[in-house]
Design a protein around this nucleic acid. Sequence first.
DNA 1: GGCGTGACTATAC
DNA 2: GGTATAGCCACGC
Length: 122
Amino acid sequence: MSMTARESHLSAAHAAIHRAIRKIPRGCVASYGEIAARAGLPGRARMVGHVLGAAGAEAELPWHRVLRADGSVAFAPGSRAFREQKRRLAAEGVPMLRGRIDLAQYGWERNLDAALWAPPMS
DNA sequence: GGCGTGACTATAC
DNA sequence: GGTATAGCCACGC
């Protein structure tokens, strides 16, 4: 089977996105845009969503750790997918408050600030 | 090829 | 907080 240059490029981007998502540590979250950037595709946040949709909920990907840039879940509140994502996050210690995840605290490589701002007292 | 749609985002009011 | 707009791009019709 042959592939056009474009198909090959898309396939590589797809794989890069899968790799970036798999690297999100347990208990952390990352935005679609951040995943795109880490996959070498800055500005292509929509492509991350598209790839995840194509992968499906059964994929062996920590899809629940991918959020919008403001820390909210991309699915409609109350929907099956929304509840499942919230449940999976809670299961690894990531709470959702007012419909959002605190990126300053749980964001991938963005939690250093939180550690400095909220050091254990006494 | 155009056009609408969408698991997006940044900027500007 | 919200709406609008523009950029992004794969996909299906």
